[in-house]
Design a binder for these strands. Structure first.
Lengths: 234, 234
DNA sequence: CTCAACTTGTCATACGCATGTCATAAAAGA
DNA sequence: TCTTTTATGACATGCGTATGACAAGTTGAG
């Protein structure tokens, strides 16, 4: 698991700095934005794992940004922790209503901040792990442990299932055979690199009747990739 | 039946302690939280059987937490008993409006508390357990403790009954043998994992004459699943 | 109390699918 | 064309599942 990326949106450089240092010590990667607009850009471009959002921001408030994020399909699953300057009841309630996953009142201890962040991330990731992934009719449901294509069940072996699961949760990215081996088979497993080819083939074969084998693309000289886009110009 | 787990959310340690002792004497497992945030985390993570929720809590009030719990699909079935410090009618009414299953006014006797808890639990569990489940002609009636397929009685052992009951109330979901053991046999029971296979077989055998064994599906490398959908593409 | 009928957990064994590897064909670059 | 890389079919092995049998435990009727 790569380190979690956290975006802190706050107009006070001092606060950003303080939080950033604390987060880095706690083994997070930190992104920073000093206002809501910039924050929104970064969220869209970088898709951080969590956003720390100051309540009071110049022009567009944090609450407004939160509302927008939660309204947008592409960002509404990114957890938000609101930072409120004062301990005002109203703020907290409103913040939660807006869809924030938690809030924390300044001043706060970095210890508390970290533990809140971890709690929210834990919740988010377990929720995400149970969520079905669906791409153009190809659907993987981790709960029932089943693949379906246009609601037709698709039959495949356990390894192909895990392979597809990995691919679908890491789309648009090329992986070497070794990487796939580590991720899907697990580290410290001695398996021939070329074995991947065979499993790729089996996965394609299972998806082929529905035409979904086009998602499993060969990246010559490197490995494989799951991509919704066409592999090449036709 | 494992012991019911009860979460007490109250900011006063003295009260928590008192209630906790009383509940443990009454053979409940007790979880504690001192504020709404922590309470919410525990509820999400641990899924207690019932929540005792103080009306007045710092920052996020109990009432607000109750509202959120009842609004969330995943937590709205967990019964809530509100604890109000004063005997204010308004509170009670509002508390019930929010979705609390009962309320109780401080100071209360532990005797009363226990009996209220049991009443609520009884209601909750019977509400959930007394409804017959029917799937495509296969019907499980918890009241008469009977299975019927197209109105024909189906004969099976008690364990197979419980297994089927669990499956039918948790459809479309794959369970490992260990999970099934915990859920159907109960935790802290030492039974061989492979024993599940045998009971699955017996259950299938009982359902086979009606063709309903197709619902009991093997998820290779994982466990079993009850599903109405076909196991594999034909 | 005794016996029969039934349950239930475990084991041994049979079965079948899944997996890893190889040999070879096909394809893509150079 | 030649070389490198990937695709594919076949195959042996091994692992996970299915199945039948059995012994111990339980229940209930006589």
């Amino acid at each position: 698991m790569s380190r979690n990326r956290i975006l802190i949106v706050d107009d006070e450089p001092a606060i950003r700095e303080m939080v950033a240092v604390a987060l880095e010590l706690a083994d997070f990667d930190v992104l920073e934005a000093e206002n809501a607009q910039r924050g929104h850009e970064i969220i869209v471009d970088e898709r951080p794992d969590l956003v720390l959002l100051d309540w009071m921001l110049p022009s567009v408030t944090g609450i407004e940004l939160a509302r927008r994020l939660k309204r947008d399909e592409t960002t509404n699953e990114i957890p938000i922790i609101m930072l409120t300057a004062k301990s005002e009841e109203d703020n907290k309630v409103q913040g939660l209503d807006v869809g924030a996953d938690d809030y924390i009142t300044k001043p706060f201890s970095t210890r508390e901040l970290i533990s809140r962040i971890k709690a929210v991330l834990r919740r988010a990731s377990s929720a995400a792990a149970e969520k079905a992934i669906e791409v153009e009719g190809l659907c993987l449901d981790p709960v029932s442990h089943r693949i379906s294509a246009n609601d037709e069940p698709v039959d495949m072996g356990p390894t192909e299932y895990r392979l597809l699961e990995f691919f679908m949760s890491h789309q648009e990215r090329a992986y070497s055979r070794t990487q796939l081996l580590d991720q899907v088979w697990g580290a410290n497993v001695y398996v021939e690199d070329r074995t991947i080819d065979v499993h790729i083939r089996r996965l394609r074969k299972a998806l082929a009747p529905f035409g979904f084998d086009r998602f499993i693309q060969t990246v010559r000289g490197t490995g494989y990739r799951f991509s919704v886009k066409a592999a090449k110009a036709s």
